[in-house]
Amino acid sequence: MAKAKANTDLCKGCRLCVANCPRKAITALETVNKKGYEIIEVNEELCIGCGICYKVCPDYVFTVE
């Protein structure tokens, strides 16, 4: 089954994916990436591969496959 994979190097910490995920599978972390933005984490067990995170993300972090 398709799952969302996050390339958190591109993340800018806007949290739109966290707010829009219908299964609450994305959690906001306090860890920062190389650019200094707080990143997110995808829980693959909850993810249903709907692609909503891909569609709302302005920075192309997610790939669903």
Partner: peptide
């Protein structure tokens, strides 16, 4: 399958969100 379009070759330079 949702994958970034091939025409996007660089990161987005905008502010977060």
């Amino acid at each position: 399958v949702f994958r970034k379009p091939e025409s996007i070759i660089n990161t987005a330079g905008y502010c977060g969100g």
